[in-house]
């Protein structure tokens, strides 16, 4: 550990603003870069599941109809 206190970590001898700004502006797109495709995958997956339920529901009544 190089720094002595949390305040020193924040201040970084006057360069804190630049360093933390750079890291924040990196962290944000990085998180988005992982989160957005994960969200898309979940959405597509849920859509596929709903589609399967829909098609199952659509085929069932006709099957019953043919029985009667």
């Amino acid at each position: 550990m190089y720094f002595e206190s949390l305040a020193a970590v924040w201040h970084m001898d006057g360069h804190g603003f630049y360093v933390w700004l750079a890291y924040a502006l990196t962290a944000l797109p990085l998180v988005l870069m992982v989160w957005l495709p994960v969200k898309r995958i979940r959405q597509h997956w849920r859509w596929l599941q709903a589609e399967q339920r829909r098609s199952a529901a659509a085929t069932q009544p006709t099957a019953m109809g043919s029985d009667v």
């Binding site: 550990m1 190089y2 720094f3 970590v9 970084m12 001898d13 006057g14 360069h15 804190g16 630049y18 360093v19 750079a22 890291y23």
Partner: peptide, 17 residues
Amino acid sequence: GLLVAPPDFRQGNSYRI
């Protein structure tokens, strides 16, 4: 990089970028 590494002798802490 942010906390453990020593600062650069010319650029100080800004080099951590």
